[in-house]
């Protein structure tokens, strides 16, 4: 019984309590680069989630055979092989999807969340637990990156997912600053402060 609660925790922890962007603070590079519009952010979220869940499963499957001293190079080979296969297959069989997600696929290789989860979790846990962890972490990642995309797109163009909704003064005087990396950093800072204040009340 206790086991089941623990397992569920692997999944729920990733969403907010151990959110990859706002709490663990890894994978900031693709976050900043692709959260300029909500649509791009969602694309990156989906593509990264897919690779994260799959690489967690594969790495936890082969963990018994991987010598400790060369584990990092092996993880990187596994992850990049996986990303490249996804890239080719998507290009060949889902060109419509590729047109939307294609730019983000090579970026996933350098997403530290994936290597980070392989090293910190999948290498020490079973297949099902690793799957749950991957699912939770990718949900947390997608959630935050899409939130950032919506906020940055709205402030800089008065649109959300390409639909014009904002007041007129915002579309004529957009906050272009939010589109650039400093705006992204600022937003990550604000979101982290909010999460620290209201969700993870850690006594310091």
């Amino acid at each position: 019984m206790k086991n089941r609660v623990n397992r569920l925790k692997y999944f729920t922890d990733g969403i907010l309590k151990e959110n990859p962007i706002l709490v663990i603070m890894i994978g900031l590079c693709p976050t900043l680069a692709t959260s300029t519009t909500a649509k791009d952010a969602l694309g990156m979220g989906i593509a990264a989630s897919f690779v994260l869940i799959a690489s967690n499963i594969v790495i936890s499957l082969i963990r018994k055979f991987v010598p400790n001293s060369v584990r990092i190079p092996i993880f990187i080979i596994v992850i990049s092989t996986f990303v490249t296969i996804v890239d080719y297959v998507m290009q060949a069989y889902a060109p419509a999807l590729y047109r939307v997600l294609g730019v983000f696929v090579p970026l996933i290789v350098v997403n530290c969340i994936i290597l980070g989860r392989a090293e910190a979790f999948a290498y020490h846990h079973g297949v099902f637990d690793s799957f749950l962890d991957g699912l939770g972490k990718s949900l947390g990642f997608t959630l935050v990156i899409v939130c950032m995309g919506i906020i940055r797109e709205y402030l800089s163009t008065a649109k959300i997912f390409g639909f014009n909704i904002g007041p007129k003064f915002l579309s004529t005087n957009p906050v272009l600053f939010m589109l650039f990396p400093p705006g992204g950093f600022l937003l990550i800072g604000i979101l982290k402060a909010l999460v620290n204040k209201f969700i993870n009340k850690t006594p310091e």
Binding site: F65, V70, I74, V78, T81, I85, Y88, Q91, Y93
Partner: peptide, 20 residues
């Protein structure tokens, strides 16, 4: 183990590349 992993991933990539 490194050699095995590299061989498998290399072979897989070549296979996927050629067929797609």
């Amino acid at each position: 183990s490194l050699v095995i992993v590299c061989l498998i991933s290399g072979g897989l990539l070549a296979r996927v590349y050629l067929s797609t």
